[in-house]
């Protein structure tokens, strides 16, 4: 691909793990964190990169930013081999890590930006212009003189995003940028990212557990599992691959035995007068609705779109999380 901005060909990363197996006896074991991973991202694309914990997402980001050396394969970002020329690449990329901050904890926000200004050798006029724009778009005006340790999580995250963009990076890596944020803060961050991508054509690679991030931002999704790319394409296509199902929720006039629906639709749950029916996402709901309306005393109905987390889980052939399952170990609330 001629305009591939990020290019991976058969990239792999193998970690040596030593384990104690007895007194002074250690066993060496290789763990393949990323296995023959190949993909390209064009300049200006906004791509979601998702997968379960430990799938290799962070390892991939670390290799793309040059702080991990691949064990094999070929990796280029903007024509640069990241691990060989990390510092040169650093001037052209921005990194936002949801769980860590690049800001100085005990300094006011504006001081961190001044340090970035010097560190990235941003021309003065450029710096001022970018700072003004970011402060306005991210609503940071009142926060500039506040020490970072006093900022709320959402404020800090906006501050971090601004810090990552002061030097006009061509590519932005976002690792869980909305983790722990409230609904308003999430909306604000997403709106900003959409604008950034549209107006500046910044290439964005986004890893997240929040599938709304992906739904609202990314036209393309890559799914990684156990170090391998298992899906790469449009979000809509993910539903087909995952053979996902939509849910029709019907409220009847009274409690009735499960509706006898035409296959492949079937009743999956009954609770008093309310019944849940699953049917393939690729099929229209119209026929099913008409049939039920004709044969049963229908009061109300609604159609629920499939949960992508469940889709991915089905695709990966692992049990899906149900809405009332406890939060997963990483602390993300499963939608």
């Amino acid at each position: 691909m001629a305009d591939a901005f990020i290019e991976l060909v058969d990239v792999e990363k193998v970690f040596e793990v030593r384990r104690k197996t007895g007194f002074l006896r250690r066993e060496r074991r290789s763990v393949r964190a990323v296995d023959s991973l190949s993909f390209t991202v064009a300049r200006g694309e906004m791509v979601g990169y998702i997968g379960p914990n430990g799938a290799g997402k962070s390892t991939t980001i670390k290799m793309l930013t040059g702080i991990l050396t691949p064990s094999g394969g070929r990796l280029r970002v903007a024509g640069i081999d990241p691990s060989r020329e990390r510092t040169r690449l650093a001037h052209r990329m921005g990194v936002v890590l949801g769980q860590r901050t690049t800001l100085w904890w005990d300094l006011p926000l504006i001081d961190s930006y001044r340090l970035m200004h010097r560190m990235y050798r941003i021309p003065d006029a450029r710096y001022r212009e970018n700072l003004d724009r970011l402060v306005e778009l991210l609503g940071l005006a009142d926060l500039l003189d506040v020490p970072v340790r006093q900022l709320s999580l959402g404020q800090r995250m906006r501050g971090d995003i601004a810090a990552a963009l002061l030097h006009d990076p061509e590519v932005l890596y976002l690792d869980e940028p909305t983790i722990g944020l409230d609904v308003m803060s999430k909306a604000r961050v997403r709106e900003f990212l959409r604008q950034l991508n549209a107006e500046r054509a910044t290439t964005v690679l986004l890893t997240t557990h929040d599938l709304q991030d992906i739904e609202q931002l990314c036209s393309r999704v890559m799914v990684i599992d156990r170090g391998r790319l298992v899906y790469d394409g449009a979000l809509a296509g993910l539903h087909e691959v995952g053979e996902s199902e939509r849910t029709l929720v019907v409220d009847l006039e009274r409690e009735l035995p499960p509706i006898e629906a035409p296959a492949p639709a079937r009743v999956v749950r009954v609770e008093g007068p309310r019944q849940w029916l699953a049917f393939p996402a690729s099929e229209s709901a119209a026929g099913l609705v008409a049939r039920i309306a004709a044969e049963y005393p229908l009061v109300d109905l609604s159609v629920r779109e499939p949960d992508i987390e469940a889709v991915i889980a089905r695709m990966l052939d692992t049990p899906a999380d149900t809405p009332d399952s406890p939060p997963d170990p990483a602390g993300h609330t499963v939608r």
């Binding site: 930013t65 702080i67 510092t87 990194v95 890590l97 860590r100 901050t101 690049t102």
Partner: peptide, 10 residues
């Protein structure tokens, strides 16, 4: 956190 420092061009 040292990983964050490695992202910097210094």
């Amino acid at each position: 956190e040292i990983a964050v420092d490695l992202y910097r061009p210094v």
